[in-house]
Design a protein around this nucleic acid. Sequence first.
DNA 1: CCTGCAAGAGAAAACCTTTTCCCAACTAAG
DNA 2: CTTAGTTGGGAAAAGGTTTTCTCTTGCAGG
Lengths: 351, 351
Amino acid sequence: MASDTSPAPAKNPVTLREVAALAGVSVATASKALNGQGRMTAETRERIRETAQRLGFRPNSLAQSLLRRRSFTVGLLTNDTYGRFSLPVMSGISDALVDKGVSVFLCNVEDDQRLGQLHVDAMLDKRVDGIIATGKRIDRHLPVDLSNLGVPVIYAFTQPDPDAIAFVSDDAGGARLAVEHFWRLGRRRIAHVTGPASFAVVHARAQAYRDVLTEKGLPVMEPLLGSWSEAWGHEAVKKLFDGKLSKSGGEKPDAVFCGNDQIARGVIDALRERGLGVPDDVGVIGFDNWQIVAEATRPPLTSVDMNLAALGREAGLTLLSLVGGQPAEPGIRKLPCRLVVRQSCGRPPDG
Amino acid sequence: MASDTSPAPAKNPVTLREVAALAGVSVATASKALNGQGRMTAETRERIRETAQRLGFRPNSLAQSLLRRRSFTVGLLTNDTYGRFSLPVMSGISDALVDKGVSVFLCNVEDDQRLGQLHVDAMLDKRVDGIIATGKRIDRHLPVDLSNLGVPVIYAFTQPDPDAIAFVSDDAGGARLAVEHFWRLGRRRIAHVTGPASFAVVHARAQAYRDVLTEKGLPVMEPLLGSWSEAWGHEAVKKLFDGKLSKSGGEKPDAVFCGNDQIARGVIDALRERGLGVPDDVGVIGFDNWQIVAEATRPPLTSVDMNLAALGREAGLTLLSLVGGQPAEPGIRKLPCRLVVRQSCGRPPDG
DNA sequence: CCTGCAAGAGAAAACCTTTTCCCAACTAAG
DNA sequence: CTTAGTTGGGAAAAGGTTTTCTCTTGCAGG
């Protein structure tokens, strides 16, 4: 009815057919022109390109996917709704994939088996090219079976059957970083306050802690296991500084390596309350480098960062190469941690 | 070569064609049987269904989408990588949509215009049914233009042009909740410590704070604006309890309503340090109900919760109805907050 | 016995793009 | 002038599903 020649309010997308018609060629030629395939006069190619440009043509990804059997889409499964762990991981994955034109379906499965299956089915229906599973805890995995799915699967910050492909942080290495940092600063009576025994990382870090102390010939105090909370940090300080101290000859610690930043915060607050200066009397190092906590402690907390975003990036890139047909060694890859030095340990080694 | 009759390691997905062949019917009939369409003997229908079941047939969502021009996919745009705000929102959205078979593309655009455009284009190419935009701050929106996209757009916890559809928290209502709670508990000298003036919510909450005090005939102390940090909480306590206090006749506050939980934590710590008891001498209420902070304060913090997950749910459902062709009134919908009572204000009103 | 109708099922188009093959026309060589 | 080769471009199939239309068969009514 009306002569609608306005620049089209982007109602329904313009198809290749329309471009071809307007340029006076067949859809085949149009496709080849836009993809740089086929042979044709430079003039023809340019004319088609211009037409496509002018019409705002964008190829329908669904049709492409159907044909190529590749959707440029991956699924990300997590059970960490509010998580400070899986979020950086996600961010890294997304970073790695966006440049390649790959989009990410985020699916939070909580810890619900049914929900997990639902999401996995949905992903498979939508023909994701691959799946990345992550979680809030390395030593637990998602309530869902990802074997024999017909698409590649990668695990990030979560540990599956041993012949899967997984990326996790090197917790032992991270712990070494912390303890060796204390050592370099001249601290000699180093304590370790950490989370519950049910976490695998607790043992990995505690063992590394013992190893370093032994290597250096320092007294090993048995790690204090508790919860991941500030309250436990408070309590642990009581145990460390009140009790008649064991083997080491009654001497109080001059450094505390904590299993996470919340414990560290509790420790710092408790130390201050009993008149001990941080870092002057006691140095403190946390774990996780949870910025919002680490920077709110007084003084700001030196902490071990697990490089989760990098871990996510690796996972994403590896998945992509798997999708591309490159084989990949099964097994668990541990990625190094990094020590973020703030002010809770005294001056940096070469300050 | 080999007789492969094993239950198929799910290599390449089974198609409708194969089901039809095995059941001895055409693909048309097979399709109709599985979708409950068309007319056929109950026996035929059942046979086809069984065959599909046995083969583990799942319709290719890409093909369906292509045909239906509906992908059962929505895009979620955010700039809040590590956010405690957008994460609950996402969770609510996802919750609302998963039951309807809709998957969510999560795209973090940081504050990068180029990245935003990249993601939006990718979404459009993948033929998302709609887009939800969220953010970390109500009064800022994403660095990307979402008008005239050809798909419905909903905003959640972020404020766009006034004739868009948006869901935000009712900050004024939340503030009223807090101040009225103090009032019911008999607190009469209520202070307000909040964030920087550049945030719209600061003004909304401050005005509500003033309104309630005026309604109740209580003295209004001018809100203290600062940063969103614990440190500011400390500092504010100094100002409130050291200075010669203004109009109200030199009396110190018996309640502090804080703009977020971190400020509240700083306030509580500072009060304790100067020997003031919480809640006995001073009551404290926070905002955001950030569990990890609220529960780490001593005593645990009463806080205003913005119901972000519910907000996400509403956004998701509204988007869906929009996609379904239902019209929706443009404008901003404010969703109520809720007060989560812990122990920082004294006994609950009817305790 | 013929007509009309309903039931059951299939053929084919449609969705949109890519790619393989094929064809026509033109050029150059013999 | 014929043949071979090249160039520019199109037809058609493929990808998997849904839906409309058509066709065949069987049965009832006249």
